[in-house]
Design a protein around this nucleic acid. Structure first.
Length: 570
DNA sequence: GCCGTTTTCGGCCCGACTGTTTTCAGTCG
């Protein structure tokens, strides 16, 4: 996707400009970089359709940056970046990954010691040359040496599912201390972003030193970046950083609002405050020197004329305008799902028998469960054929008779062939209660062909749901490109639901597509693609994804009771 | 470099921590 490439280049340019002390110019570039990162439409497409004029419509883009975007689209490079690099030819991308090194210090390192990259930096630090520079000392030299080691490990963001459980344990440990009061997650974890770089926790306490002393010694801490009275920062063995902040009770809400972000959301809220003659910071909302709100987030938002905005919405992508106009969505709740509709058993590649999975789902609180083992040609996952499917159906009937309190739906996850046909005969599919279609082959088809492939599948009246619609897998596969408006149109017309696959390695659909799907009138389901029982609880990440896509309960079919869930597909 | 219900010029969000400084610059979120 062109947006991500361009965002990276613009943000790199911002860093070089920072080094050049062109601070406000730098800010303009990084602002556009952030906009591009979270923008749904591809810049390349925008340019194709509307030329440079359309590019200038993008938030924060004026004449100058528009031309640079055009240059990148046409030639694949931005010559200004080359000029900036020439001025100070250092590997800014990697050097600034070292904690404590920013553009200014990197410039000093280059001017004084000709340090251009991590290798040079390591050598110089080992030789004790860095400590002698102005603004550096032996302490920072040691930090640099330590940080270089960590750069490799911190190269990536983590799927939320790998971090949230760990951070909840940390929070639990802090809660158990007799020192603290209120405690909460903050940052991107509280916003339930799909990938996480570091974790933020807020706590109120009148013994901050003791809280911090305990925090930096929690099991798994491998490095203490900072330890102060109000803020401490540590690195965990897993490779992510965690910040703990101690705040005052009367500022807890303001701090929570502030540290939950996103950065852009905060900039907008502070601008609104400023317009009203108020000041908003992490201590509260102030009229002159007087705090007029701060204890709770709700009060903070109220004080600046906004309703409470759910953390998942705080991305500065319309939630503030919606709030001002009283048009915020009533987001789907974390307890609203009535049943999982994408599960595998030991008939294909799952772990559990039909019966034990059903029992576990009942215990989890579900009213129904769709058994959707692989069917078709995916032999690696022991896909079932027509004969086996029929056999399984009668087995499910038997279990249904024996179990009370939960209903099983006879289903299948059928392979969608490259030509868009389904890999199981229609007359067998017609007997099933729920048919999920999924692409498991030929991922590299181009946008047009893949779109046609899915449309043909959706036009099969037996198909109810398209599973993991883009096929992306974190750290493994980028996912195929689809022509979304066409897909949404077809999904609506054929009453095909799109899946929000909640498995932490997938989280597919993405938030922006969820939002577009809903705007297009397409219905969705949230399912955990259950293999072992433990996956059931991953539904939380799918719900979070849906909330970030502005989904309400009515948009998600499996928030309905069984009857009305199935009715949609009739 | 961008932007405009005070503005086409003159602003651009705001504060803590660190290391080194001996009052602050740089970094970070």
């Amino acid at each position: 996707m062109l947006n991500q490439e361009l965002a990276q280049i613009l943000s790199l340019m911002a860093d070089y400009l920072d080094m050049d002390e062109a601070f406000f110019e730098s800010r303009a570039y990084s602002k556009v970089a952030r906009v591009l990162e979270s923008m749904e439409q591809d810049v390349g497409v925008i340019y194709q359709k509307g030329g440079i004029k359309a590019i200038k419509q993008i938030q924060g883009v004026g004449q100058g940056i528009a031309y640079k975007i055009e240059e990148y689209i046409k030639t694949g490079r931005v010559s200004r970046l080359g000029q900036l690099k020439k001025k100070c030819p250092v590997d800014l991308e990697n050097l600034s990954r070292v904690e404590g090194l920013g553009p200014r210090k990197i410039k000093i390192l280059y001017k004084k010691l000709k340090i251009k990259n991590l290798k040079d930096l390591g050598k110089a630090a080992k030789a004790g040359k860095v400590a002698l520079l102005d603004g550096f000392g032996s302490q920072s030299e040691q930090n640099i040496l330590g940080a270089i080691k960590f750069v490799k490990a911190s190269n990536e963001r983590f799927p939320i599912g790998e971090i949230l459980p760990l951070v909840r344990e940390i929070i639990k440990e802090l809660e158990d201390l007799p020192l603290g009061g209120q405690i909460s997650l903050a940052g991107s974890l509280r916003r339930m972003k799909e990938t996480i770089k570091d974790a933020d926790i807020l706590i109120t306490s009148n013994k901050p030193e003791q809280v911090m002393e305990h925090f930096v010694k929690i099991k798994g801490v491998v490095k203490i970046w900072a330890q102060g009275k109000t803020k401490s920062s540590v690195r965990f063995k897993k490779g992510f950083d965690c910040d703990l902040r101690v705040v005052k009770k009367k500022s807890f809400g303001a701090a929570l609002q502030y540290f939950t972000g996103s950065k852009d959301h905060n900039i907008s809220t502070r601008k609104i405050a400023k317009k009203k003659g108020l000041k908003l910071n992490e201590y509260g909302v102030y009229k002159g020197d007087r705090q007029i709100a701060g204890k709770t987030e709700k009060q903070v938002y109220q004080a600046i004329g906004l309703p409470y905005i759910e953390p998942e919405l705080r991305t500065n992508s319309g939630e503030i305008e919606a709030g001002l106009n009283n048009q915020l969505p009533k987001l789907i709740g974390y307890d609203d799902i009535k049943g999982d509709v994408h599960c595998h058993t030991n008939w294909s590649d799952g772990r559990e028998s039909i019966k034990s999975l059903a029992r576990a789902a009942k215990k989890f609180g579900y009213q129904y469960l769709a058994i959707t083992d692989h069917a078709g040609f995916l032999k690696i996952a022991h896909a079932l054929d027509e004969k086996q499917l029929i056999k399984q159906m009668s087995q499910i009937d038997k279990v249904n008779q024996k179990l009370s309190g939960i209903k099983l739906i006879k289903g299948a996850e059928v392979d969608i062939r490259p030509d868009g046909s389904l890999a199981i005969e229609d007359k067998v599919l017609a007997q099933l209660g729920l048919v999920i279609g999924a692409v498991h082959s030929m991922f590299k088809m181009n946008r047009k062909d893949m779109t046609q492939r899915l449309i043909k599948a959706m036009n099969n009246p037996n198909l109810n749901i398209v599973a993991h619609p883009t096929g992306r897998v974190f750290r493994k596969r980028q996912g195929y490109q689809l022509d979304w408006p066409i897909i949404f149109k077809a999904a609506k017309k054929t009453r095909t639901a799109l899946e929000i696959n909640a498995h932490t390695t997938r989280l597919d659909l993405k938030d922006i597509h969820i939002r577009q799907a809903i705007e297009s009138g397409v219905k969705l389901v949230i399912s955990a693609d259950v293999h072992p029982i433990s996956y059931l609880s991953m539904v939380e990440y799918g719900i979070a994804q849906a909330r970030r896509g502005w989904a309400e309960s009515k948009d998600i079919l499996n928030t309905r009771p069984l009857k009305s869930f199935l009715k949609y597909f009739e």
